[in-house]
Nucleic acid binder design. Structure first.
Lengths: 338, 338
DNA sequence: GACATCCGAGAGAGCGCTCTCACGAGTCGC
DNA sequence: GCGACTCGTGAGAGCGCTCTCTCGGATGTC
């Protein structure tokens, strides 16, 4: 005589209640079509009555799947986390897409030095089916190590150097070139840039876009100060630029935050925007609509980057082929700063 | 004759390589002290050689633990996600603390209508050992349902009504009262407030703080417009306030974002801050230092809220007792807007 | 020197599930 | 009417781990 089920119901419990076998219950749970309708129905009723929920640990022990995906945010990402809308946006995009696919999102914040090893251990343990790497680092070895570990990986942003894993990125350079054309079209001739860090592809390509755009101005010389994508660095860089050339009449900043910083410095130093100096940013975060004046900026589809990342990793996990890269378009959003 | 291990090494593989039994290897992996040093050493070497990593699914199948904690961000949270530094800050805090405890962070973004059921199913499946609920909703039934499911739960922010689960919150009212004293001390007499949504405790308590602070001004009547914590609502509310009373000389806004909105409206309508109107916000997010003028605001320890949440849930999961509530202090940060 | 004690290590069961394989009963063809 | 199928179902192995129980040998006690 079997005692009443004490804890959570198992397949066995349900099977007994429905007068079927464990195997058949499993079939119903997993949506097999080869079960006689009336049997399936009584099993479903038993499942509902008992409040049965499959034990994911037991399931993944045999299936070798976990139905969860890791999203790794490296140190540099978490540093700017609190002031930048990029990563929250990506998280949302990834999260939504994974939810639709009924996968779990495991967040790995690589904030400390020991994180690297911890992540590798974690991934080696196969607690996740795949990894989305929001890597902005330059020579980060993580993508390659993860690939070597045999885990499906997709990264956000093309890595510096050879890309060894599929990635999602945006058209940095062409977006910036559109911004430069806009400035030139506005009659600006002394156009400077506040670039991003040059150990990130985003930083490099946006600078490349600036240089390419400058080519439309015969005889113009590049005027570059580097920032770190954050607001304060934009304020400082703008000050240095004006010291180097007080006659600057146009600025492209490689992030909205830096553009906002530039706006503040310009205002403080008595320059009118856009009359004296036209300013264009990059990102089109929410706050860009609220700068003073509202920021003209290069829009990148942050949310879509997230959903695309999820889409690609899901396909890889499912064993499908995937494009080596997906590059999403950017476009200029004209507001009042230029 | 046993064939060479094909896939990932298991305990068995390691045991054979080290000439020990599965049980002993397990002991070493789990740090048991009852293994003879030399045996332990050779096992550790075998583990390193083979690159053995325990299979978490197999482990949790028997231990009934998963070593992961869910962080649930409800719809309202994800909506403001992209522009508010609160949730990213909490995520970071929780993430860091969990990392230290070697637990995983599973992010559940409750963005869609079906999320409620999905979350319950998920939690019933015991894929996580505990749940941190960043609930800001009013009559959200989730905390109670989770508790009923027998899962340890901690929420961020006291729920409206009876608190059925432990929570972490901050001293909303007393912080606001300090802000009000500051305004009164500045000689302000017509003090208005832009309140938060009244279906959230944070919204209500900050309003209560305003009303309490106003009591120091004999004969003063409350002047309240409600916002939704976002910037645009602050802009609109400020406009309505000035229509109702053009002589307002002080404003407390229940969030920094709304305070920033108020600042913009005031500037647009030709009011000088703080000369004509003094403005105080709440949150002390990064951006508060960059408003124009820099925002005087009530600081709340966002990061600490996260770490405390993690701390409490870890204790609950470990079977320890926990305070029914932890209320963290707030304090006024005086900058230039008041 | 005989017996109790203790400690390190192995054998084995079992966590809850999936999946292959086998089997019995019906269906069809000739 | 008999062999060949098909189809729904059950039995049973086994995923990789932990943990209890047991046991052999070393140590201690008188």
């Amino acid at each position: 005589m079997n005692e009443t089920p004490a804890g959570r119901p198992t397949l066995e419990t349900v099977a007994r209640a429905a007068g079927a076998s464990r195997a058949t219950v499993s079939r119903v749970v997993n949506g097999s079509t080869t079960v006689r309708p009336d049997v399936a129905e009584s099993i479903r009723r038993a499942i509902a009555d008992l409040g049965y929920v499959p034990n994911p640990a037991a399931r993944s022990l045999v299936t070798q799947r976990t139905d969860s995906i890791a999203l790794i945010l490296p140190e540099s990402a978490t540093r700017v986390f609190s002031d930048d809308a990029f990563f929250p946006g990506v998280i949302r995009g990834v999260g939504e897409a994974l939810e639709k696919a009924d996968k779990q999102l495991v967040l790995l914040l690589a904030s400390t030095r020991s994180s690297h090893d911890r992540i590798l251990r974690y991934v080696h343990g196969r607690t996740v089916d795949g990894v989305v790497l929001a890597s902005m680092h330059g020579a980060d070895t993580l993508p390659e190590e993860l690939r070597a570990a045999g885990v499906p990986v997709v990264t956000s942003g093309r890595p510096l150097g050879e890309a060894t894993v599929p990635y999602i990125d945006v058209e940095h350079a062409s977006g910036v070139e559109a911004a430069m054309r806009h400035l030139v079209g506005l009659g600006r001739r002394r156009i400077a840039t506040i670039s991003g860090p040059q150990d990130m592809v985003a930083g490099r390509e946006r600078l490349a876009g600036y240089l390419a755009g400058l080519a439309a101005l015969p005889g113009a010389t590049p005027l570059v100060e580097e920032g770190d994508f954050m607001r304060q660095s934009g304020m400082d860089a703008m000050e240095r630029l004006l010291e180097r050339d007080p006659d600057i009449d146009g600025v492209f900043a490689a992030s909205d935050l830096m553009a906002d910083g530039a706006l503040r410095t310009l205002r403080r130093l008595g320059r009118r925007v856009p009359d004296d100096v036209a300013v264009i940013g990059f990102d089109d975060v929410e706050a860009a609509r609220f700068t003073d004046p509202p920021l003209t900026t290069v829009h990148q589809p942050i949310h879509e980057i997230g959903t695309r990342l999820a889409e690609q990793i899901l396909r890889l996990v499912a064993g499908e082929e995937v494009e080596a890269s997906v590059v999403l378009p950017t476009h200029l959003v004209v507001r009042e700063s230029a």
